[in-house]
C-alpha cells in the first residue's frame, strides 16, 4: 500500500468517526438497545471482507476456509442483528 492510499483511508476513517460521534450524541435512552443491536449489525460489514477472502484459490488452501468461516459468522451477525432490531422496534408504541 502506498503512503498516498493510506492517507486517503485515514482521511475516510477520521471523517467517518467524527460523523459517528455527531450522529449518536443525542439519541434518547429508549433507543439505546435497538441502536446498539442495529449498529452491531452494521459492524458485520466485515462480511464484505469475508466474501473477498473466500473467493480466491482452491479448497485445499487454509485462507479460503478461514474466509468461509468468517463469512458464516459475519452473516449471522448481519442478518441476526438486523432482524432482532426490527423485532424490537416493531414493539415501540406511543399511547393510543
Amino acid at each position: 500500500m502506498s503512503l498516498e492510499t493510506l492517507l486517503i483511508l485515514i482521511y475516510i476513517l477520521v471523517l467517518a468517526s467524527f460523523l459517528g460521534f455527531e450522529l449518536i450524541n443525542k439519541v434518547p435512552p429508549t433507543l439505546h438497545t435497538p441502536l446498539m443491536s442495529g449498529s452491531n449489525a452494521i459492524s458485520g460489514i466485515t462480511i464484505v471482507g469475508a466474501i473477498l477472502a473466500s473467493h480466491t484459490l482452491g479448497y485445499s488452501q487454509l485462507s479460503k476456509w478461514l474466509g468461509m468461516t468468517a463469512l458464516i459468522l459475519a452473516t449471522i451477525n448481519v442478518v441476526g442483528g438486523y432482524a432482532v432490531t426490527d423485532r424490537m422496534l416493531k414493539m415501540f408504541k406511543k399511547k393510543k
Partner: peptide, 27 residues
C-alpha cells in the same frame, strides 16, 4: 471491521466500522 478495511483497502468497511466504533464509544 475498520482494521480489515485497511487490510483490503476497502472504503465501505472503514466507513461502517468507524461509525460503529464511534457510536459504541459514545454509549
Amino acid at each position: 471491521a475498520c482494521a480489515t478495511g485497511f487490510i483490503i483497502g476497502n472504503y465501505v468497511l472503514i466507513v461502517a466500522g468507524a461509525l460503529v466504533g464511534a457510536s459504541g464509544l459514545i454509549l
